[in-house]
Simulated assay, not measured.
Amino acid sequence: MHALDRLEARLAQERALVVAFSGGADSALLAVAAHRVLGERALAVTAVSPSLPDRERRAAAAFARRHGVPHVEVRTDEAERPEYVANGADRCAHCKSALLDALAPLAALSGGAVALGTNLDDLGDHRPGQQAAAARGAIAPFVDAGLSKADVRAISAELGLETADKPAAACLASRVAYGEPVTPELLARIEAAEDALHDLGFGVCRVRVHGGGAVARIELPTDAFDAAHERRADIAAAVHAAGFTFCALDLDGFASGRMNVLLGMPAVQR
């Protein structure tokens, strides 16, 4: 059976769905596919908090409008939870708990389930949030349908979704070294620095933070190093303007989940 057919067959088993929709490639496909199958019984919901970049919030809303997907936003309170702020190895579990606390009432009203865009490739990462979500009854249709990240991108391209080749965009809290507090002020500084890098032409980038918020370690694809060298003064000025004392370029390049090396785990190159 074709991958899209498998996905739609899985979605058809649900009475209604509330899709956790960040606007990334995974959740965008899930929102569109759920709407194709369930119509108005599928609702895309974006969780708004200091960890969501405003550019991603705007992009998610614009995507939903373009594709006619019913969409709302909810506020989540993870930034007010001490366990999340402490930024231990289980930070994502506390974030997912806050997400499910916000989405569960909407799912209850519709008589449906909360659906996450987890795919098969995600199962090998350090993602304690997956266990927290599953414990609260959230479902993962991509996993149930046997879809990998490559499948998600292929189906998205087949459907003409502009997110088919969108780079991964993890939450801003993933930029903070484990054990260092996650605060709205620090997340705002990270967002400002990454926005500046985007404006300078570096569409794929991460500003990772160490040293109590003093050190900004920039990750770029290695093929962007020459451009970064040419614009090093502009990059440094932008990072300092965002409130960082030190600005460093990571010579290992960009990799998703780089902070996981602090937990003795490999990063994930995507």
Results as ranks from 00 to 15, higher is better:
residue 1 M to I: 14
residue 2 H to W: 05
residue 3 A to L: 11
residue 4 L to P: 08
residue 8 E to Q: 15
residue 8 E to P: 12
residue 8 E to C: 13
residue 10 R to I: 13
residue 16 A to R: 06
residue 22 S to E: 13
residue 26 D to S: 09
residue 27 S to C: 03
residue 28 A to Q: 03
residue 34 A to M: 09
residue 34 A to F: 04
residue 36 R to Y: 11
residue 40 E to P: 07
residue 45 V to E: 02
residue 46 T to S: 13
residue 46 T to V: 08
residue 46 T to C: 12
residue 48 V to S: 03
residue 56 E to I: 01
residue 60 A to C: 08
residue 61 A to L: 14
residue 61 A to D: 03
residue 70 P to E: 06
residue 73 E to T: 08
residue 75 R to I: 07
residue 76 T to K: 10
residue 80 E to Y: 01
residue 84 Y to Q: 08
residue 86 A to Y: 03
residue 87 N to C: 11
residue 87 N to H: 14
residue 88 G to S: 08
residue 88 G to Q: 02
residue 89 A to S: 13
residue 91 R to E: 13
residue 96 K to Q: 15
residue 97 S to D: 15
residue 101 D to C: 12
residue 103 L to V: 02
residue 103 L to G: 00
residue 104 A to C: 01
residue 104 A to R: 06
residue 113 A to H: 11
residue 116 L to R: 07
residue 119 N to A: 11
residue 120 L to H: 02
residue 122 D to T: 14
residue 123 L to W: 10
residue 125 D to C: 06
residue 134 A to D: 15
residue 136 R to C: 03
residue 142 F to S: 07
residue 145 A to S: 10
residue 145 A to Y: 08
residue 145 A to L: 09
residue 147 L to G: 04
residue 153 R to Y: 00
residue 159 L to V: 01
residue 160 G to R: 00
residue 160 G to T: 00
residue 162 E to H: 01
residue 173 A to F: 13
residue 174 S to T: 14
residue 178 Y to P: 01
residue 179 G to M: 07
residue 183 T to D: 06
residue 183 T to Y: 02
residue 183 T to S: 14
residue 190 I to G: 00
residue 192 A to H: 06
residue 193 A to H: 05
residue 201 G to E: 04
residue 205 C to S: 03
residue 206 R to P: 13
residue 206 R to L: 06
residue 212 G to W: 05
residue 213 G to S: 05
residue 216 A to N: 10
residue 217 R to Y: 10
residue 220 L to W: 09
residue 221 P to M: 13
residue 223 D to R: 13
residue 223 D to M: 14
residue 223 D to T: 14
residue 226 D to F: 15
residue 230 E to W: 01
residue 236 A to N: 01
residue 238 A to I: 12
residue 241 A to G: 09
residue 242 A to C: 13
residue 244 F to L: 08
residue 247 C to D: 08
residue 248 A to N: 13
residue 248 A to H: 04
residue 250 D to L: 09
residue 252 D to W: 08
residue 253 G to R: 05
residue 264 G to L: 13
residue 267 A to W: 07
